[in-house]
Amino acid sequence: MRIVVLVKQVPSTDTRLAFAPDLTVIRDAGPAGLNTADWYAVDQSLQIAGQQPDAEITAVTMGPAGAVDALRTALVLGARSAVHIRDDALHGSDALATSRVLAAAVDRLGFDLVLCGSATADSGMSAVPAMIAERLRVPALCFADRLEVRDRTVEIHRDDGCGDRRVLAATPPLVVSVTERCGEPPYPRFVTRHDARDKPIQVWTLATLGIDPAEVGLAGSACAVRSATPRRGRRPDCDVLAMGDPASVAVRVADFLAERQFL
């Protein structure tokens, strides 16, 4: 079974994102690390490999030079090889462009299973895995809280709110995205750490993938950011602070829970 795990290096969540004059995120300042959900994706690939001795795990990232650290982490955890897609023309790519590049890379590698995180900590669109599946014309099982890979089917448990937990199945080849509820990733053993140094990291460019630079990056993207305004103040996202008598506060909370499909 050929497994490709998509991993992204993201700025640390403890600090505010910083934007460059072209309104893209500054990626080479401050601490960064492997996106949390992607840890779980790597871990799931290792669990599958534990049961399927022929499994081969390749970690792939698209990112600037510093993103190689995400690949190193994946190799330390146990991926066998890695591909770094690096090309200055990719700077500023939107989700459409990103999915184009990642789908081309996955296609070039060949795969039975593509494992992704369900969302990233920087932009967190949660759309890239499904977009890659659409491009590859294979099924997507997104937001897996639990993943089971059998001989001919892949099954996920997913939570759609309201206590509604569905079990969905599809036949490989396919794309799966996993949430941070997919078990606790184990700490890598010392041996694997040592081994990782000799594992190969290939660098691919747009030319390797046969993609026209005009189709990606800031110029080739279908979305454009007009402005990014920092919002100061004590509670950035807490737009709503319900106050009043207990009954009306309770109704406000119930409305909110219903809106987000928890009731």
């Binding site: 934007f19 932009s123 920092p230």
Partner: peptide
């Protein structure tokens, strides 16, 4: 709303 509201970003779609 970006990064849990730390930024408000204005965007447009320029293709499609």
């Amino acid at each position: 709303s970006v990064q849990h509201g730390a930024y408000r970003v204005e965007s447009v779609v320029v293709r499609g």
